[in-house]
Design a binder for these strands. Structure first.
Lengths: 209, 209
DNA sequence: CTCTCCATTTTTGTATCCAATACAGATTTA
DNA sequence: TAAATCTGTATTGGATACAAAAATGGAGAG
């Protein structure tokens, strides 16, 4: 039983993530309302939620637009993710369970399978698995608020769908980072996990300079 | 020209911050609507915004309640603030202007004046100046998103109004930290600023163990 | 052909209305 | 008397209606 607000929230967020809505696009309430078969009211509530999280900006009498991140914004976000996720990885190394490690290994395998001869669909799947991978590590840290803050930070890789611009070498390096992260976590080495996570995030954002 | 939504948002947030609403209190839409003279609609939008930022929790058909932070939550938040604010202070040391330093000195002086023989009002004023002081440093880092993330993290000192529980020695130490922070920033020493900021935040949260 | 201004159309912001749900107090039953 | 259920009321969630602001498009002037 999901409320109209939840439906609206999920719909808009996923439309932004998948690129149905491009950065800067205006989000017309009526259109969204028709798509999911509810009135404008829950759409507007969802929009406020998304605005508070930075995914859309709403200005008075101009409604909501998909946030249009400048390269400066993306740099800031990347830096914050590097800070927060490496912090989380460091804690996770001391706490992670065998089950959680197993889940990470499965996710890594899944990404590797997609990365062999990637089609457009494979890239989408990698993007999805990758964000699951990152969130799993943060959650293993046990700091729920950290997970929340990171979850609410727009993910440049998601927003820009950058994986598809990765060449073979970059993709391979990214996959190697995942495995190294798992090893560091399994070994309980917080410093190592923290460092490789930081490198992983900074490396993946290196394309647009 | 502030919209009804903005009025509602500010009203509720400040009611939480100042303690008009205690943690766990139910926030009745109708009541807020009457207070500021608008209908329930903008109240509900504001509530979603506040929910996304973690200040209130809304559950289906039970409306909004002021978030009830557990001591675990407050520990998590403190840890995050220590991480984020020390990061910000480190960057700020390399960028801060003379004007911004002057503003910090004024805020420090203001707090010191209040701290001499503090009444209840003085404590409230210290709380206010203190959060201005912290935000000024974050803003001096130039990372707008960092400022946003920190601004949306509930401030345990604000929520619990902890300053009033500080004894003279703790208050004096806190004031000394502020001066040391200013010196570190003025000297352009990022590491120093970062370290003293971290100590400052962790010291101020040490009461409730 | 382009620019500007005004009328029209869209779209948003807020209020109000109705339906769905939760909570509390009363009533019944064991 | 205590527990369970029922019923009434309060409150939220969502839909609709209407007003106000902004976008749009076209006519006319340069």
């Amino acid at each position: 039983m999901s409320s109209a607000l939840e439906k609206a929230y999920d719909f808009i967020k996923s439309a932004i993530m998948t690129g149905t809505y491009q950065a800067g696009d205006r989000i017309k309430e009526e259109w969204v309302a028709e798509q999911i078969g509810v009135s404008r009211t829950p759409i507007r509530n969802a929009m406020q939620k998304l605005a508070a999280q930075g995914f859309v900006v709403v200005s008075h009498h101009q409604g909501g637009r998909v946030a249009n991140w400048s390269s400066e914004d993306l740099r800031e976000i990347t830096e914050l993710r590097a800070l927060l996720e490496s912090f989380g990885a460091g804690i996770a190394a001391r706490k992670i369970s065998q089950d959680e490690l197993g889940a990470l290994r499965d996710l890594a395998s899944g990404m590797e399978a997609c990365a062999r001869n990637p089609t457009a669909e494979d890239f989408a799947r990698i993007t999805d698995l990758n964000s699951q991978f990152h969130m799993a590590i943060v959650e293993a840290s046990g700091n729920r608020r950290l997970a929340e803050v990171i979850g609410n930070l727009a993910h440049p890789l998601l927003v820009q769908r950058k994986f598809s611009t990765f060449d073979e070498a970059r993709l391979a390096r990214s996959m190697a980072h995942h495995r190294e992260l798992i090893d560091a976590l399994a070994a309980g080495k917080g410093d190592w996990a923290s460092a490789i996570m930081r490198a992983h995030i900074l490396a993946s954002s290196n394309a647009d300079e």
